[in-house]
């Protein structure tokens, strides 16, 4: 029987489940893509925090409640959560070897990233649509 030929495109296909994360090169690529987008997030976050530092809630509502700013910020925040989930997953894969704690840590990691993302995005959307 012939051995299947492993090409770069085989490895790039997440369905073939290469690597510890069983996600082939998808995490590698996603981490770089989201990382590049996070440069925008950082600039945006600094701008927002500087603009409303020391102001009351009206200042926050008038800035983040602006649909363009609020919705873009919410999307960027969700992308940050994707990036940090993959990053922490990589750390767990490096240091947590025992199978049960490894799986538990990975689940908690996903839960944390999703929870932070949902709370952040819903809060911003609340400010945008209901002030």
């Amino acid at each position: 029987m012939r051995e299947p030929v492993i090409t770069p495109s085989t490895i790039a296909d997440p369905k073939t489940k290469y690597g510890n994360a069983k996600s082939s090169t998808r995490h590698f690529f996603t981490q770089r893509l989201t990382g590049a987008i996070n440069i925008l997030f950082t600039a945006f976050l600094i701008y927002i925090v500087i603009s409303i530092a020391g102001e009351g809630r009206e200042g926050v509502v008038s800035l983040l409640g602006n649909p363009v700013i609020g919705i873009v910020f919410a999307i960027l925040f969700a992308i940050v959560c994707v990036h940090m989930r993959i990053g922490m997953r990589e750390i767990i894969e490096d240091y947590v070897h025992e199978q049960r704690t490894n799986r538990l840590s990975l689940s908690l990691n996903s839960f944390f990233a999703i929870a932070v993302g949902v709370v952040g995005v819903l809060s911003v959307l609340k400010l945008v649509f209901w002030g």
Partner: peptide
């Protein structure tokens, strides 16, 4: 790597602040 881990935790602080604003 350490700053990545710290930012991971800090994101909860940001989410908390956004929730408080909401």
């Amino acid at each position: 790597r350490v700053t990545g881990g710290a930012l991971y935790v800090s994101s909860a602080l940001l989410a908390l602040w956004l929730a408080a604003a909401a």
